[in-house]
């Protein structure tokens, strides 16, 4: 079963802003995210599983998660942004 939506997105999490509340981790339907206890923030550990449902962006109380279409940077360029340990 491959979901055609899968793997179309890139997930950026700003560690400085993330408070590791765990909301995105708990409710992500594809289990893309995990809390990195050492870093004290969420990380996209299975980015390829992301179905772009938008839950994490809408619910992040700290505006720390940006989900962008793959191949585009968040500024619309083509270079991927600095990734969070991925």
């Amino acid at each position: 079963m491959t979901n055609p939506k899968k793997g179309q997105t890139r997930i950026t999490i700003y560690p400085d802003w993330c408070k590791a509340c765990g909301l995105c981790v708990a409710f992500c339907p594809a289990k893309v995210l995990e809390i990195d206890v050492a870093a004290g923030c969420a990380r996209a550990v299975r980015e390829q599983e992301c179905v772009n449902c938008g839950f994490c962006e809408l619910h992040c109380p700290d505006f720390a998660i940006v989900v962008t279409p793959r191949g585009k940077t968040r500024n619309g360029g083509t270079q991927p942004p600095q990734e969070n340990g991925n």
Binding site: L23, F63, A64, V67
Partner: peptide, 30 residues
């Protein structure tokens, strides 16, 4: 769901210190 957070960022005050003062998981940010 592209550009949800970017849009919010455009409305935030860039000279304010982030993250905001609210606790982890507080719904006020949502």
């Amino acid at each position: 769901m592209a550009e949800v957070t970017q849009l919010i960022h455009e409305y935030l005050r860039h000279d304010k210190k982030f993250p905001h003062v609210l606790c982890p998981g507080c719904g006020h940010g949502i």
